[in-house]
Amino acid sequence: MATQIVMDHTGDSRHEFDPADTAAVAEAEDRFKMLTGAGFTAAKRLSEGKSEILRSFDPTVEETLFIPRLRGG
């Protein structure tokens, strides 16, 4: 199972999908496009505390984190 984690006021919301399920993958891709289109940054977790920014949807990524837009404090 792959997981999309969206930061929100509850901490986060999680959406799991099976990468082998075409309909679920399409839904996850729609979510990816919707969130990044709204200004969220998508990042995937690598090993040992490293991460990488995702520019496009990749169904093989196990864990994608969506970070809301940043601003100066």
Partner: peptide, 8 residues
Amino acid sequence: CLTLHGLF
């Protein structure tokens, strides 16, 4: 100072 838009 760098934060997120909204309450988090």
